[in-house]
Design a protein around this nucleic acid. Structure first.
Lengths: 348, 348
DNA sequence: GTGAAAGCGCTAACAG
DNA sequence: CTGTTAGCGCTTTCAC
């Protein structure tokens, strides 16, 4: 309320120059020479008046809203989306862009995705980010084609949009290497049974580490089930019940690991002394609240959010190696988060 | 890209009227009579051209950005913030408003809060929502005074801003009543030890139910500790270790309940047969993944988000019983979510 | 009932 | 190096 805030002409007046000059210096307009002394005067005037540009006028004139849309699946289901938002937010702020977030359903008719994109289009965002809840391939709504876009945590089935995804293989390598370096050689793997990149990537990483350390692969040490707590429990229960049970378990995700904890407890195996466990996802709510804390692999959600916005900005500025970027999704590191669930195996 | 989208003059032309008329009918401008037949023609023209107003021009002209800022604490920490966002989002869409979300730190210098509000101000939002991570009292950044505001999950220390919070007492009543109706009379309460509304409200609800059912209050059945998993475990361990242990536990939150589960397991008490447990917060990641599923009380985050936006809209439209609203925070229901952790006590 | 026209605050030709 | 000026697309006053 109060007094209507200062406009560019107020600044011009106070600095004793024209609005053009003010516009030039405040925007660092290229191909424009303004005396350093004038610039200083203008900037000072702007500051003393507390001048901030009127976004609407700017947008109207430049045809750029300064808004970028983030279409995110299932914002409220896990904190994952939250971290993407955080990363995107921070990067956006860096570039004076505003993030407009729209929640979308995971498995919707595709129709609704269209509508969600439309909502963003109606708000005339300059570009859009599309974030999925888990690493997978997607088909983009057709109306998304109209705008620069970047995919987060998924790849484009058509392969024409830049994408950033977690390095699943690398994450698994970190996890299993940690186990091997702690002295484990019989390492069970409780894997997901969905046909998604994470399933294959984490398995791939598991195999690579075994190979690299000359540990022969034992197919009986790998079992698969839906990646939930209960199936994890059942798988672990079975595998840990064997006479030649593994001394460590690498779990597809923290929920399966949570099930494994329960199985271990029931079998009288203490973690980490009798059994080491490593999870994946680093879901704080689970990993930090288990006893002992679960050593797991973090997904680079925040970093993917940052990368996506940075890429969008480059695209918007026409430094677009768009094709190049879209060609191969960018992989981001999945670092190991050490808590208390891994120890050296006890001698038999 | 493609063709630049239709403007109001295109619509006017196609409908054979002036832009004024188009504006009037599309906005249902009051005190304006346009022949029904003309309205129809205009609307039809708009639809066939796929016309959508240029937000920037609208904003510039009306001095209303159509943006509302949501300042939310710790977006990525729990899904709570996500549900508030969802509710606010849905309500905002209903009113053709766009939500701009800014993450803020929980315990920051107050300085940074100022900056976050400033960021919103710079983006010229029409109003702001301030959402805290847990129910408490806050002091608002001074620069927030400039705009209509509504508090979510907290109350204003100064008492001048409308607020919506969970009905803690009611939630606790629902939880404990459920226990009593299942036949429990010795009900332990593992409470938080912070001086926050939830602590007092949930205790109050606990007492009320006991009173209402003629169960005499036993102070030894209430213990307090920080509301984390480990303290919850320790408290439960102690209380359940007594000879006259309670047959049911009401826990301040799901994390404490998670600790109680562990204590029960260690003591060989099976849930729900030997011990019933009710939590609070309904954190899916925990409650749904425990064995058995935890019966708990849900916080009305989504609903608070909706309420806040609706209230903001009313405020914006000047139907402002602002003072009235601010006077007493609005309480929203905390419904019980039944899973599998409650059963009738077994006869001794 | 309908229309003409004046800006909202800013950017970017273009002129000087 | 700096200033004048014409709109961006829309709402709204005022006249018809």
């Amino acid at each position: 309320m109060a007094v209507k805030s200062a406009g560019i002409r107020d600044v011009a007046e106070l600095a004793g120059v024209s609005v053009t000059t003010v516009s030039h210096v405040l925007n660092d307009t290229p191909h424009t020479r303004v005396a350093e002394e004038t610039r200083a005067r203008v900037r000072h005037a702007a500051k003393t008046l507390g001048y901030g540009p009127n976004r609407a006028a700017q947008a109207l004139r430049t045809n750029r809203s300064g808004l970028i849309g983030l279409l995110s699946e299932e914002i409220a289901t896990t904190p994952h989306a939250g971290r993407i938002i955080l990363g995107a937010q921070d990067a956006a702020r860096e570039h004076d862009l505003t993030l407009v977030i729209i929640n979308t359903e995971r498995e919707s008719s595709g129709h609704s995705h269209r509508d969600d994109v439309q909502a963003l289009l109606d708000r005339q965002v300059d570009a859009v980010l599309y974030a999925t809840m888990y690493h997978r391939q997607v088909s983009l709504p057709p109306n998304l084609q109209a705008l620069p876009a970047v995919l987060i945590d998924s790849t484009d089935r058509a392969g024409i949009v830049p994408a950033v995804v977690p390095d699943e293989v690398g994450g698994a390598i970190a996890a299993v290497t940690h186990l091997v370096e702690s002295g484990h050689t019989r390492i069970g793997f409780l894997n997901n049974d969905d046909d998604v990149p994470a399933t294959h990537g984490r398995f791939e990483g598991y195999r690579q580490v075994l190979d690299a350390h000359g540990i022969s692969f034992d197919a009986t040490l790998v079992s698969t089930a839906p990646s939930e707590t209960l199936p994890g429990y059942e798988l672990a229960r079975e595998m840990l019940g064997r006479r030649d049970r593994p001394t460590a378990l690498f779990c597809y995700n923290d929920r399966m690991a949570m099930g494994a904890y329960r199985a271990a407890t029931e079998l009288g195996l203490s973690i980490p002394d009798d059994l080491s466990i490593v999870g994946f996802d680093n879901q704080e709510l689970i990993a930090a609240n288990l006893f002992p804390g679960l050593t797991t692999v973090a997904l680079p959600h925040y970093e993917m959010g940052v990368w996506a916005v940075e890429t969008l900005v480059r695209l918007l500025h026409g430094e677009g190696e768009y094709k190049l970027l879209a060609d191969k999704p960018t992989l981001l590191d999945c670092p190991l988060v050490v808590r208390g669930s891994v120890a050296r195996p006890t001698a038999h």
